[in-house]
């Protein structure tokens, strides 16, 4: 019983008072998880598009299915004459901000285009253009998960090139950008 109490205590610390993405499934459990993960990541991706994380280049989004996105932390030992004299470990908490979605935020996002993306997400089959649009949006949105600004810029350039380059013959700015960094 003590083991159960410890387990539930750890779970409460980790997930209580956070949001969960809920998906209805009828499948083998590991496969059901894969389906659910894919759906939740797609929905989070379009939601993130409307968040502040996609506006401020130094604002990092840590909201993802738990165990898929880790906040920065640190661990180091200070050693003097071969002996550990100090240890430090913890989160680099300065940039760690929760993503709070109020009812008003959700209403605004819905009016600003989330309703259209919600419709497209639910569509059984999408056109090539809709798929391309989703691909670009996903890249743009995922840039907010990156901790390095050059990586974020690369995501943004690839997203734009996905939409606006006609074919492979056109010069890819993002490739030159990657080489530069």
């Amino acid at each position: 019983m003590k083991g159960i109490n410890e387990h539930i205590k750890r779970r409460r610390t980790k997930i209580q008072n956070t949001a969960a993405g809920v998906v209805l499934c009828a499948a083998e459990p590991k496969y059901a998880f894969q389906i659910a993960l894919e759906q939740v990541e797609k929905s989070l991706s379009v939601m993130r598009f409307f968040s502040r994380f996609c506006i401020h280049p130094t604002s990092i989004c840590f909201s993802a299915p738990i165990e898929k996105q880790h906040p920065d932390g640190h661990l180091y030992l200070i050693v003097r004459e071969g002996r550990v004299v100090q240890e430090s470990a913890g989160f680099s908490g300065g940039k760690l901000r929760s993503w709070n979605i109020s009812n008003a935020d959700q209403k605004d996002n819905w009016k600003s285009g989330l309703a259209i993306l919600d419709y497209l997400l639910k569509k059984e089959s999408r056109t090539d253009y809709e798929e391309t649009l989703f691909g670009a949006l996903d890249l743009y949105s995922n840039s907010a998960l990156s901790k390095r600004i050059p990586d974020r810029l690369t995501y943004l350039l690839i997203a734009l090139e996905t939409l606006f380059l006609k074919d492979q013959s056109e010069d890819h700015l993002c490739q030159r950008h990657r080489c530069f960094f």
Partner: peptide, 13 residues
């Protein structure tokens, strides 16, 4: 059934 995937650092009203 429902698969619940907790999302880190996300709060909703």
């Amino acid at each position: 059934g429902e698969i619940w995937l907790p999302i880190s650092f996300l709060r909703i009203q």
